[in-house]
Design a protein around this nucleic acid. Structure first.
Length: 438
RNA sequence: CGGGGCGUAGCUCAGCCCGGUAGAGCGCUGCCUUCGGGAGGCAGAGGCCGGAGGUUCGAAUCCUCUCGCCCCGACCA
C-alpha cells in the first residue's frame, strides 16, 4: 500500500478527551475515531489490526473444536423473556421497538439465541458435545463508557457456547476453552493470567477471567508471582480430558484472583510471593450447567431413551478491547509497538527523499519486490521530510522500517530498523528483502 | 444515576470574570530555500464561537433552556 493513496489520518497532538495511552495512541495513529460516547469508527489501519486479532481468535477457537457461525445483532424480546433475562438485564440492554411496535433488543450477549438455535438442530446425545461460536458486534449501554475501546458500548466480541451431556463433559469443554485462551493471548504477545472470577448475572459456579496486567486496568487483581512467567502449553494434549484437567489444575494451584474473589487465607499462604496489580479483563470463561437449557426446555434423547438437559458453558473474548490491551502492554514514547502477529503491516518502507529520482526508483523497486513476495508493506512515498516519515512509522508501530535514503542508495544499501528493539542494520537491498520475506 | 468540567478553525487551545467587527500554534494550499528523526521564509484558504430562546444599541462573552462530550463516584461477564 502506498501511503500517498491510503487513508491514514494521524494526529500530531493528543486529543484532550483521551485519558489512557492506548486510547491516545489509537486516535493519534489513525486507528479509530469516536462517533458517539463509547462508539467508534474503525479506520483502515485499525480495521486491519482488528482483523488480525480476530483471525488469531478464530484459529484458536477452531483448533479447540468450536464451530463458527453468525447470529443477528438484533434479537426479539420474546426470546429473552424465556430465560427471564429480559427483565433481569436492566438498562444496560439497548431496547428497540420496530415499526410494528414489537419489542426488540441489540444483543449484549447471546446465550439465549445459541441455546435456541442449538436446540433446533440437536435431538440426540449423539449431537453432543458441541461448541459453537461467533465473532460479532455487541452493544451494552454502559452507564459510563470510558478509556476508548477498553470500555465501549459497541464492541466486537467472540462468544462461544458449549453443550455437553454431563458435568464431566462440560468441564472438559471448559478446560479446552481455557487452554485456547492461553494460546490465543500468547500469540498476540500478551501475558494473560486466568483468575477466579465472579459469575455475575450469567450465573453458574465455575468461572475465570483472563487478565492482562496493566496499571490502567479497571480491575484490582492479586496473584502469585509464579504467574509472571509465561506458561508453556505446547506439550499438553487437549483431546485427553484427564491430562488437560491435570494441566489446568496445576496452573490454578498458583493463586490469582480479582478483588471480588479474594481469598485472604490463600493470600496469606502465598506470603511475600503475593503480588498486587491492576489488570484488563480480555476474556472470561463460565460454566453454568443447565441454567439456560432448563429455562428454555432444551433436551436431547439419551442412549437409553431418557431425556438429557445439556450442560452449558459460555466463553467470551473482547476482540476490540484486546487492541487497547495490546497497546497498553506494548508502546513507548514514540507510539505503538505492534507484536508481529497483529501488526497492520509487516514493514514500513520509507523513502526519505521522494524528490530524488535515484531514491524513488530504488524504493519503488523494493516495494514491487516485497509486494510480489506477499509481504504486507506500507510504502511511505509522500512528499515529506525524513523526520516526518520516521515519526509516522514509529507512531503507527509497524514492526520493521526499511529506510531508503540517498547515502544508502549511492552505496547500494538500505537500513532495516526493528521498531520494538530500536536496532538498525545497514545491509544490501537483497539481504533486506531476504530477511523480510524469510 | 449523583457530583464536577468542557463545547471557539482539521487538531491543541486562548479570548468569556470586566459585552464593542474572531485569535495563536500545529495542520492544510501555493511559491522559494532546505532535505536521515515531526525544518525555515513569504503568500493564502479555513470558524452563523454546539443549538434555541432572552437581556442589550450591540452577545463567543451575561441569563434561561437544551443537546453533546469528558472526569470522579456509584454501577459493570
Amino acid at each position: 500500500m502506498r501511503l500517498s493513496r491510503y487513508f491514514l489520518p494521524v494526529l500530531k497532538e493528543t486529543p484532550g478527551d483521551a485519558q489512557i495511552v492506548s486510547h491516545q495512541l489509537m486516535l493519534r495513529a489513525g486507528l479509530i475515531r469516536q462517533t458517539a460516547a463509547g462508539i467508534y469508527a474503525w479506520l483502515p489501519l485499525g480495521h486491519r489490526v482488528l482483523r488480525k486479532i480476530e483471525q488469531i481468535v478464530r484459529e484458536e477457537q477452531d483448533r479447540a473444536g468450536a464451530i463458527e457461525l453468525l447470529m443477528p445483532t438484533i434479537q426479539s424480546a420474546d426470546l429473552w423473556r424465556q430465560s427471564g433475562r429480559y427483565d433481569a438485564y436492566g438498562p444496560e440492554m439497548l431496547r428497540i421497538k420496530d415499526r410494528h411496535n414489537r419489542e426488540m433488543l441489540f444483543s449484549p450477549t447471546a446465550e439465549e439465541l445459541f441455546t435456541q438455535i442449538f436446540e433446533n438442530g440437536a435431538r440426540s446425545y449423539r449431537d453432543l458435545p458441541r461448541m459453537l461460536y461467533q465473532i460479532q458486534w455487541k452493544f451494552r449501554d454502559e452507564v459510563r463508557p470510558r478509556f476508548g475501546v477498553m470500555r465501549g458500548r459497541e464492541f466486537l466480541m467472540k462468544d462461544a457456547y458449549s453443550f455437553d451431556v454431563d458435568f464431566a463433559g462440560a468441564r472438559h469443554s471448559y478446560n479446552r476453552m481455557f487452554m485456547a485462551y492461553l494460546r490465543t493471548f500468547a500469540r498476540m504477545g500478551l501475558h494473560a493470567i486466568p483468575m477466579r472470577a465472579d459469575t455475575g448475572p450469567i450465573g453458574g459456579d465455575l468461572s475465570h477471567e483472563f487478565i492482562v496486567l496493566a496499571p490502567t486496568g479497571e480491575s484490582e487483581v492479586f496473584y502469585h508471582e509464579n504467574w509472571e512467567k509465561p506458561r508453556d502449553t505446547s506439550a499438553v494434549d487437549a483431546d485427553d480430558p484427564a491430562a488437560l484437567e491435570a494441566f489446568i489444575d496445576g496452573l490454578n494451584t498458583d493463586y490469582a484472583a480479582t478483588d471480588e474473589k479474594r481469598d485472604l487465607a490463600l493470600e496469606a499462604e502465598a506470603g511475600s510471593a503475593l503480588k498486587q496489580s491492576r489488570g484488563i479483563e480480555v476474556g472470561q470463561v463460565f460454566y453454568f450447567g443447565d441454567k439456560y437449557t432448563k429455562a428454555m426446555g432444551v433436551t436431547v434423547q439419551g442412549p437409553d431413551g431418557t431425556t438429557i438437559t445439556p450442560e452449558m458453558g459460555s466463553y467470551g473474548i473482547g476482540v476490540s478491547r484486546l487492541m487497547g490491551a495490546i497497546i497498553e502492554a506494548s508502546h513507548d514514547k514514540d507510539g505503538i509497538i505492534w507484536p508481529d502477529a497483529v501488526a497492520p503491516f509487516k514493514v514500513a518502507l520509507l523513502n526519505l527523499r521522494a524528490d530524488d529520482a535515484a531514491c524513488a526508483a530504488a524504493a519503488d523497486a523494493i516495494y514491487a519486490r516485497l509486494e510480489a513476495a506477499g509481504v504486507e508493506v506500507l510504502y511511505d512515498d509522500r512528499e515529506e521530510r525524513g523526520g516526518a516519515k520516521f515519526a509516522t512509522a514509529d507512531l503507527i508501530g509497524v514492526p520493521w522500517q526499511l529506510v531508503v535514503g540517498p547515502k544508502g542508495v549511492a552505496a547500494g544499501t538500505v537500513e532495516l530498523k526493528r521498531r520494538g528493539a530500536g536496532t538498525r542494520e545497514e545491509l544490501s537491498v537483497d539481504a533486506a528483502v531476504a530477511q523480510l520475506t524469510a
